[in-house]
Write a protein that binds this DNA or RNA. Structure first.
Lengths: 202, 202, 202, 202
DNA sequence: CATGAATGAGCGTTCATTCAT
DNA sequence: TATGAATGAACGCTCATTCAT
């Protein structure tokens, strides 16, 4: 009986954390990190300001929590793609499609958070980013070993891939907002894989 | 006489704006945007806090001003490169080298500011970004017309180029901090131009 | 049957009050009054925060309760000494020794609480203090009647005695922290009894 | 001109510090340290809460400032008395009279603050207390050398003197509130100097 | 124009107390 | 009774902006 009650409480508690994180994420995406205040958060989450501190030590922990969730989702999905029995180029295409299509708000999150983390989070960011690069690097290495890709520096190539995706997602010039995500991803992958030079790698 | 005096005043005023912007930029690069306070700015610019408001409406206008200047410098330099009598690929390489080497602190500025602009600045950002893309797009078009580049979509290609540069500059995984800027630029341009696929563009 | 059950309940209840007071006292002595929070208290007393309110109206009542207990202990001990068949001077010496030696943490308690009582407690403090003075005054009167002490104003003399003890216990200059409590008590009593003037009471 | 203006500003600024300290002191004496809030202080000093921080780094600095002022006043006055060409016993009597008569609110201040200082202030307190003891100890030594006082331990004797004064000032039993300060001081000095024992120091 | 003290809304956070379970 | 999450007023403090001088 006690067990059941404890489980209930744990469930409720986990749900509260979830609600708080969801609400915070929504506010950040809508108004930017600077406009995420504990008061605003409490209001939108329909709890009191003090209650938040039953579930998170402080504001920073909430922001970190959001980053964690978003990254985990991203890494999980990419890892799943990396595990498929496909040629490396197809994996990269799939990853591009995924990043474009499934993460419209993660993009906004990254926009808002990526460049403004307090020092303790920076280290986390670096490590998570390395895990992301690892997945891409692995796929690129697979392509090289299979003779599919030219012998390049995989880490740098992985970063370049990421950069292309990010830039087209962020799209500060608002040039591509009309395009289908899938199409955009295809084109990005095309440029990345073939380069733009005529008769490259003859 | 009055005219001359007015010109003097305008000159002095412009100089004050310059000093304020320079100082703000230094603070942002050194301490981050969150640590740019009007008091700190006044102190380092050796004027009073109140005086700043004679030259700028508010803090936001200062931050916008910094973005403006940084962008203008960037665009001027890239336009100069674009105007040289060189093959398009060499121009892109030169642009990459320039962005990596000459703008280490502009990178910090972008990091700090790019993703945190209040709505009115967003529009400015879009327009400026489009001008940046225009320069790159023009160079890429030149390459296509010269038969140097394959027939691709130039705007998308320009964005991809930018994305690669930005990602390697930001380098959140801290993978490339040991490399020479020129070398990194060369490698980035190489990947961009040739792609990574074996036997691309057969 | 019901009576017995009620007694049980009263016993349990009294025990709970005891535990709460003990725990509060430990926290105050260890961390100071400002660090006695209901949460901390609940945790260390191994009950829930809400339960405390079944035994005490509010935090203030707890603090008062601690004062009460500490005072009662002090008064009981002093009364026991006062009841011994000894010369008055020896009683005072014994009281000094007792206060120095046996109540090191009561001293901390007094430090933390004595001067910070809310108005309702002030009255309690006054009455308790008078009881304390009564014991001392009685002993001093005994000394006077026995021809042991000079004819002085006993209440004032009792207060002076208390003041000497308190000052040496509190020792804000940290001048006596190395001395044995017994020795310090002896010296304090010596000064108190004989004064410092040469050839006093000619 | 500039000099004059600067002096004016320094004067105004010093006056503001004074007003803030006075007001804080009044609140502490009236309501206790716990009820000294920045808001309350601002209200009673008739300035805004933010303005306070133009004159003090933080609340702690204000409390320290109050302690400093009170102690300096006390030490200055006692030093002046110690410098008079009087027998030691008369100096001590004068000091007692001074402490009783001239510092009714310093007493309340000490009550409120003495036992609750944050660690950085504790050290200050210790040092100031030692200076206080130094003055008393010097006077007692003078008495010993002059053959006026018996050969006792001067530091301990000084502490005892202080303790008697403090206890009678604090007067938690409210036994002496009707007495004239001068009379009380006289009696306290009498007990201190002669002790209470019959035929002491024959 | 220059100054810098004054302002006061707003911040993140704490904690005694309440109350549905 | 026991629980512990929920509450919300209050805290110390910051800082963009204003304005009398």
């Amino acid at each position: 009986m006690a067990k059941l009650s404890e489980k209930m409480k744990a469930l409720v508690s986990e749900n509260m954390r979830h609600v708080i994180l969801e609400t915070s994420e929504r506010i950040i995406i809508r108004d930017g990190l600077d406009n995420l205040t504990m008061k605003q958060l409490a209001e939108e989450a329909e709890i009191s300001a003090g209650s938040i501190y039953n579930y998170f030590q402080n504001k920073e922990e909430i922001v970190s929590g959001i980053m964690d969730r978003a990254f985990e989702r991203l890494l999980d999905s990419l890892e799943a793609i990396a595990g498929r029995p496909l040629p490396a180029a197809d994996k990269l295409r799939a990853m591009a499609v995924f990043m474009f299509g499934d993460f419209p708000q993660v993009r906004k999150l990254h926009e808002a958070l990526m460049h403004r983390l307090p020092p303790p989070d920076r280290k986390n960011l670096r490590n998570r980013h390395r895990r992301l690069l690892d997945i891409l690097t692995g796929t690129i290495r697979q392509g090289i070993e299979a003779g599919e890709f030219s012998v390049c520096e995989p880490v740098l190539a992985a970063s370049a891939f990421l950069g292309i995706i990010r830039e087209l997602q962020f799209d500060p010039g608002e040039m591509f907002s009309g395009l289908e995500p899938e199409l955009l991803a295809e084109k990005a992958a095309g440029i990345y894989l073939s380069g733009i030079k005529c008769g490259a790698e003859p």
